[in-house]
Measured scan of single mutants.
Amino acid sequence: MTFKAIINGKTLKGETTTEAVDAATAEKVFKQYFNDNGLDGEWTYDDATKTFTVTE
């Protein structure tokens, strides 16, 4: 399945996608990506659209 992340950061904005077997796996991938890029913020997840949003 394809999962999307919308990034609303102070220094980084945009979208990225990942292929994962479930939402928990996708969340781990996205959180690692955000940690690697120095992002920290509020997380939400919309199961209907398979979209994570992080707002810094």
Rank of each mutant, 00 (worst) to 15 (best):
residue 4 K to P: 03
residue 54 V to C: 05
residue 49 T to Y: 04
residue 45 Y to M: 01
residue 34 F to N: 01
residue 25 T to R: 06
residue 19 E to M: 13
residue 30 F to G: 00
residue 15 E to D: 05
residue 20 A to W: 03
residue 24 A to E: 11
residue 4 K to V: 09
residue 31 K to W: 05
residue 12 L to Y: 14
residue 17 T to A: 07
residue 28 K to Q: 11
residue 36 D to T: 09
residue 26 A to L: 02
residue 8 N to I: 14
residue 3 F to Y: 12
residue 39 L to G: 05
residue 3 F to R: 03
residue 37 N to P: 04
residue 25 T to G: 06
residue 5 A to L: 15
residue 20 A to L: 02
residue 29 V to T: 08
residue 16 T to G: 04
residue 53 T to H: 09
residue 1 M to Q: 11
residue 55 T to H: 08
residue 46 D to C: 08
residue 8 N to Y: 13
residue 46 D to R: 02
residue 29 V to D: 03
residue 4 K to T: 13
residue 47 D to P: 13
residue 41 G to W: 15
residue 36 D to N: 09
residue 54 V to F: 15
residue 39 L to F: 14
residue 51 T to V: 05
residue 29 V to W: 15
residue 23 A to V: 07
residue 11 T to K: 10
residue 31 K to G: 02
residue 28 K to V: 07
residue 47 D to E: 13
residue 28 K to E: 07
residue 51 T to Y: 01
residue 24 A to Y: 09
residue 17 T to S: 10
residue 26 A to I: 02
residue 56 E to P: 13
residue 41 G to S: 06
residue 55 T to I: 10
residue 51 T to L: 03
residue 22 D to M: 01
residue 32 Q to C: 07
residue 32 Q to K: 13
residue 49 T to M: 05
residue 40 D to L: 13
residue 54 V to S: 02
residue 43 W to A: 02
residue 23 A to P: 06
residue 33 Y to H: 06
residue 11 T to Y: 13
residue 49 T to V: 04
residue 30 F to T: 00
residue 37 N to H: 14
residue 27 E to F: 15
residue 4 K to F: 10
residue 55 T to A: 05
residue 29 V to Y: 15
residue 17 T to M: 09
residue 43 W to P: 00
residue 11 T to I: 11
residue 46 D to G: 00
residue 10 K to H: 12
residue 7 I to F: 15
residue 1 M to A: 08
residue 10 K to N: 10
residue 36 D to P: 04
residue 36 D to K: 11
residue 15 E to L: 10
residue 30 F to K: 00
residue 52 F to H: 00
residue 52 F to L: 00
residue 26 A to G: 00
residue 21 V to R: 11
residue 34 F to M: 13
residue 22 D to Q: 01
residue 19 E to Q: 14
residue 15 E to H: 09
residue 41 G to I: 09
residue 13 K to H: 12
residue 46 D to A: 01
residue 4 K to L: 07
residue 1 M to S: 09
residue 56 E to F: 13
residue 35 N to Y: 14
residue 51 T to N: 00
residue 54 V to H: 03
residue 47 D to N: 07
residue 41 G to H: 09
residue 42 E to I: 13
residue 38 G to M: 07
residue 55 T to S: 08
residue 16 T to V: 15
residue 11 T to N: 12
residue 39 L to E: 04
residue 14 G to W: 15
residue 55 T to W: 11
residue 7 I to G: 04
residue 7 I to Y: 15
residue 16 T to F: 15
residue 35 N to G: 11
residue 31 K to Q: 07
residue 37 N to S: 11
residue 53 T to K: 04
residue 11 T to S: 11
residue 19 E to L: 13
residue 17 T to I: 09
residue 27 E to I: 09
residue 33 Y to I: 08
residue 34 F to S: 04
residue 45 Y to C: 00
residue 31 K to S: 04
residue 44 T to L: 08
residue 20 A to D: 01
residue 16 T to H: 14
residue 3 F to I: 02
residue 30 F to D: 00
residue 1 M to G: 07
residue 2 T to E: 08
residue 49 T to R: 06
residue 25 T to Y: 06
residue 41 G to N: 06
residue 43 W to Y: 05
residue 28 K to L: 11
residue 6 I to E: 03
residue 53 T to S: 06
residue 46 D to I: 03
residue 40 D to T: 13
residue 23 A to T: 05
residue 34 F to Y: 08
residue 50 K to E: 01
residue 28 K to Y: 07
residue 50 K to S: 04
residue 25 T to H: 11
residue 47 D to Q: 08
residue 23 A to M: 09
residue 38 G to Q: 07
residue 40 D to H: 13
residue 18 T to A: 07
residue 1 M to I: 14
residue 32 Q to R: 12
residue 41 G to Q: 05
residue 19 E to D: 09
residue 9 G to M: 15
residue 9 G to I: 14
residue 50 K to W: 06
residue 37 N to W: 15
residue 34 F to K: 01
residue 3 F to L: 02
residue 17 T to E: 07
residue 1 M to V: 12
residue 32 Q to I: 08
residue 15 E to W: 14
residue 25 T to P: 01
residue 11 T to W: 14
residue 46 D to F: 03
residue 2 T to L: 13
residue 25 T to E: 12
residue 29 V to Q: 12
residue 16 T to W: 15
residue 26 A to E: 01
residue 18 T to G: 02
residue 38 G to P: 03
residue 51 T to S: 04
residue 45 Y to K: 01
residue 35 N to H: 14
residue 52 F to G: 00
residue 7 I to V: 09
residue 54 V to A: 03
residue 18 T to C: 14
residue 33 Y to G: 01
residue 20 A to E: 03
residue 45 Y to L: 02
residue 27 E to H: 11
residue 27 E to W: 14
residue 8 N to K: 12
residue 35 N to P: 03
residue 17 T to W: 14
residue 14 G to P: 05
residue 1 M to K: 10
residue 11 T to M: 10
residue 5 A to M: 15
residue 22 D to S: 05
residue 45 Y to W: 02
residue 53 T to V: 07
residue 30 F to Y: 00
residue 10 K to R: 12
residue 22 D to I: 02
residue 26 A to V: 01
residue 38 G to L: 09
residue 25 T to D: 06
residue 42 E to V: 14
residue 7 I to L: 10
residue 22 D to T: 04
residue 15 E to K: 05
residue 46 D to P: 01
residue 39 L to W: 15
